[in-house]
Design a protein around this nucleic acid. Sequence first.
DNA 1: ATGCGTTTGTGAACGTGTGCACAAAGATGG
DNA 2: CCATCTTTGTGCACACGTTCACAAACGCAT
Lengths: 271, 271
Amino acid sequence: MRRTPVGRQTRARGIPEATVARLPLYLRALTALSERSVPTVSSEELAAAAGVNSAKLRKDFSYLGSYGTRGVGYDVEYLVYQISRELGLTQDWPVVIVGIGNLGHALANYGGFASRGFRVAALLDADPSVVGSTAAGLPVRHMDELESIVDSQQVSIGVITTPPGAAQQVCDRLVEAGVTSILNFAPTVLTVPDGVDVRKVDLSIELQILAFHEQRKSGEEPEEGRPAEEPARERAPGPVRAAAAKLRRAAGAAKDAKELGENDRQAVLPA
Amino acid sequence: MRRTPVGRQTRARGIPEATVARLPLYLRALTALSERSVPTVSSEELAAAAGVNSAKLRKDFSYLGSYGTRGVGYDVEYLVYQISRELGLTQDWPVVIVGIGNLGHALANYGGFASRGFRVAALLDADPSVVGSTAAGLPVRHMDELESIVDSQQVSIGVITTPPGAAQQVCDRLVEAGVTSILNFAPTVLTVPDGVDVRKVDLSIELQILAFHEQRKSGEEPEEGRPAEEPARERAPGPVRAAAAKLRRAAGAAKDAKELGENDRQAVLPA
DNA sequence: ATGCGTTTGTGAACGTGTGCACAAAGATGG
DNA sequence: CCATCTTTGTGCACACGTTCACAAACGCAT
């Protein structure tokens, strides 16, 4: 029973995932240097521009091969090309966006989309009142056309910006039609067959992580609850009934933060 | 010269970063169970719903304390409360959104924003033609009001959805005004003082990572260039001039994927 | 040619994260 | 009250990622 909801495949041709995730960062910094006609750059400089450690950067580049010159640094244009090639950005990637709500609109209008080889092949939505309108000069087409578009345009990347309730269904259709990489903005765990990559972007999760650290800063209580287990939280003493009673109190405080029908919300951004 | 562009602080009160990043996932799955009035859940079930390994989930929860009951599982409502509390979601987090372009609009309209304790304190923009309009029922106010709003409403979290060129400047003002956590949608490396957290959401990076893996799938060349270093890429033979000459050829192919004035683009989504 | 200063590339140590596998703990039924 | 069954909590081993520190490589000046 192999489940691969996210599919973190390890070490494709020896390049670590962590390195792959940083290559776009380097590429962006290098592109900026290239525009300023800077010919070469040292690992120290580039690392500063990309916001990483210089040793890490050198090790990252070492996985791509030895493109630097000792005593000098890296040739900017050459590196731009090598990283672009490694990331597969020298070819064209047609992309479909499914779910043209607020976020879908924003993505369709996204200028940086067309650059770096990504091309919006089609905008899709299930809502008849949205279908037919245009976003960023492109017509919004009906979901029914999904299969034919993916097939005819050889789309291998799909972006899901639907409400969470529709995400898995849309995902299944995309995969069935031949899409093998999915960028998911819906706050849902997508289950896909082996061989399909899913990455998720989740605003809510990022905010919650920030809130966690923020709480640490302000509520810098004197080593909260290290000496004798903090007062508000004690070890569950009895069987489930006791815990259930305790939670009845707790539930009141939590209910505020719980909205109804999370899966039916129209918003297209992660919840 | 301590630089902390991203600031990954390790192990706050013993809870690993990786665990913190998963807590919102568990919370979401638990909220769904709670709405279906499911009283208890086993680590196996919950792990499946959250898309993670059950052993990992149990270890994650063990950092929060021992909230489970052996032979039974976890009490859903109780866990919802405990995780909410741990993440700091039982309190109110006023948030400002700076840069009301396409994405700013999408975020303002984002329903899941108000839930989980996050409240939009203000929408800000520098463009006079945008200031005064409303988004999601809130008026867009001018950047000039940033400081007074942050101060009066005790805002500690800021969301940056400006063009990349303005991001660092906005960031500086937010930090100066008292914001200590920033969610950055602009494709820029933000430099902040110690004590300020920055998290970034970057569509372009996610797409490029997908493209990388996608390239691996289709172009499954027979172990590309392992036996004798692939032909197109050879070791730099001479001094910089030779490398520079080589890149001249390469540059042509790379130029397609390079747009001009990346920092001036109006789009508010990551490039 | 030789030496000097600079910067890369990487071995090695360390820290973090993951997953197995199992003992301990509780529920449940007789 | 004991036996059995389920599920948690965690010790341990391993994989992955990060950082240090330094030898090797290179440009350049003499």
